[in-house]
């Protein structure tokens, strides 16, 4: 399969996924959406294995690496600020009226962000060992 046909296939799959998702919402049943996502991923993976042309090489991998890192950094900072704002909102004026559900949500978000840092450090140590001495 040619590269352009592959991109058309991916676009068609995405369109079908959106249609199935909206039907799924209408009938209040998540099963069609879940099945569609799994089948879509498998379909794209299968078609990608049978491509005639190269769509990924060292340059695209480098672009992906940098893009992923920047996305992680920007998302992390954005979510951290959002979590702080939520906690400040939850504390209320002069800390008298603590909005417990909102506060818990804010602290959970901070915990997830801390978990992301732990995961990043763990992966960093692993790859340092793998590609180091």
């Amino acid at each position: 399969m040619k590269r352009n046909y592959f991109y058309l296939f991916v676009a068609a799959v995405a369109f079908i996924e959106v249609v199935i998702f909206s039907v799924s919402v209408d009938i209040v049943d998540p099963l069609p959406s879940v099945l569609a996502i799994i089948l879509g991923i498998l379909g794209i993976y299968f078609v990608r294995m049978h491509l005639d042309e190269v769509i990924e090489d060292e340059r695209t991998q480098k672009i992906t690496e940098i893009t992923a890192l920047r996305t992680l950094q920007i998302s992390w900072v954005g979510l951290f600020l959002f979590a702080l704002w939520i906690i400040i909102e939850a504390l209320g004026e002069e800390f008298r009226h603590f909005n417990r559900p909102l506060g818990i949500f804010g602290f959970r978000l901070l915990a997830i962000l801390a978990g992301i840092i732990v995961l990043y450090v763990a992966l960093s140590i692993y790859y340092n060992k793998k590609y180091g001495v």
């Binding site: 042309e53 190269v54 769509i55 090489d57 060292e58 340059r59 695209t60």
Partner: peptide, 11 residues
């Protein structure tokens, strides 16, 4: 050349 090297033409 891209085909021989196994990379994209853009590379």
């Amino acid at each position: 050349l891209a085909q021989k090297m196994g990379v994209t033409r853009q590379t």
